[in-house]
Design a protein around this nucleic acid. Structure first.
Length: 324
DNA sequence: GAAATTTGACCGAT
DNA sequence: ATCGGTCAAATTTC
């Protein structure tokens, strides 16, 4: 028994190495008091609806070009002046320096426990949907370098719910305690149906995260060694919240996690069950401790319309967090 | 007025 | 030249 527990701890440590963006179970940044966590990005609207100043400038310039020498004729007293200095004199350094990135495929791109501020959106060549760019909301205050991009996967419109590819770049260096409104990372209840992209043999690992319920324990185990697994109908109401993570880079993270071997590993961690698998997983599955773990009762209060613009989540702080 | 998103322009990498 | 990431003014909402 002690051996089993020891192995579990070992696996747990390995799991944590991979789940950099999941809450460390021992020290979640619990708020001092129950805080209603609201969407930061979703509470306000706004946006440039009309032509911007720059647009208008451009338009005026274009117009000037279009009319050729007419302006000169109309405004002969204008003194020739150099064009206004470019406001973007600052040269970006190492703009495309390779950074550690992690890729997550999910139907709920917003629910990752962090708060993000959108700073751009772009239509990507060959992609059906635009890519949205987010940076950590603490980037200004604390200089947190964490960023992410969210892009809806191409689909024919028939697949529901839509999947999003979320790419995380850089680690969070911010501390939640700095802001009382910062919510603890919340892992919402996910589906029991997990679809994993088939990894090539001995390539980057694939991590499957599901809630540690008795049934999903089997789910993760199965998913670790196959490409698709369905495990029942425990949560039919939210059956769309499938989550499959694909870590594109290995090694330890700022949270001190690391994984070691090249085999299949399944583990249970604070209400989460994860299967870590490399390509061609043939490892044996040791039943996880899912049944023995107290699983916080997560609940998705309101499902957003994921077909619309990507909004930040309305996080519901589980009672398990608030009681700590 | 603060905070957040929108969106075309800018700029570096390829 | 093209593409993708970022900037920043404009705009909206609270």
């Amino acid at each position: 028994m002690a051996l089993v527990l020891g192995r579990e701890e070992e696996l747990l440590a390995q799991l944590r190495a991979l789940l950099t963006f999941l809450p460390p179970p021992a020290s979640p940044p619990a708020p001092a008091a129950p805080v209603k966590v609201e969407s930061i990005m979703g509470t306000s609207g706004g946006g440039r609806r009309l032509g911007s100043k720059r647009d208008r400038d451009d338009d005026s310039e274009a117009e000037a070009e279009q009319h050729g020498d007419e302006p000169a004729a109309a405004q002969p007293h204008y003194c020739p002046h150099p064009p206004p200095p470019c406001k973007r004199t600052r040269r970006r350094k190492n703009k495309k320096k390779r950074q550690q990135s992690k890729c997550l495929v999910t139907t709920v791109p917003d629910f990752d426990g962090y708060q993000w501020r959108k700073y751009g959106q772009k239509q990507i060549e060959g992609a059906m949907y635009p890519r949205s760019y987010y940076r950590c909301i603490q980037s200004a205050k604390q200089g947190c370098q964490a960023k992410r991009t969210v892009q809806r996967n191409d689909d024919d419109g028939a697949t529901a719910p839509p999947e999003y590819t979320v790419v995380y770049v850089a680690e969070h260096t911010c501390t939640a305690n700095d802001d009382a409104l910062e919510a603890p990372p919340v892992i919402l209840e996910t589906t029991t149906s997990v679809v994993v992209r088939a990894p090539a043999a001995h390539t980057d690992p694939v991590v499957v995260v599901v809630p540690a319920t008795a049934t999903t324990s089997a789910a993760a185990a199965a998913s670790a060694c196959s490409t698709t697994v369905t495990t029942g109908t425990e949560s039919p109401a939210i059956s769309g919240d499938d989550v499959a993570c694909c870590w594109s880079s290995s090694g330890s993270s700022s949270s001190g996690y690391s994984y070691a071997d090249d085999s299949c590993c399944c583990c249970c961690c604070d209400g989460l069950l994860a299967a870590v698998v490399h390509g061609g997983c043939g490892g044996s599955w040791a039943p996880g401790p899912a049944d023995s773990v107290s699983v916080p009762s997560f609940r998705l209060q309101e499902m957003e319309d994921l077909t619309g613009p990507i909004r930040s989540p309305v996080h519901v702080v589980p009672r398990a967090w608030l009681d700590r």
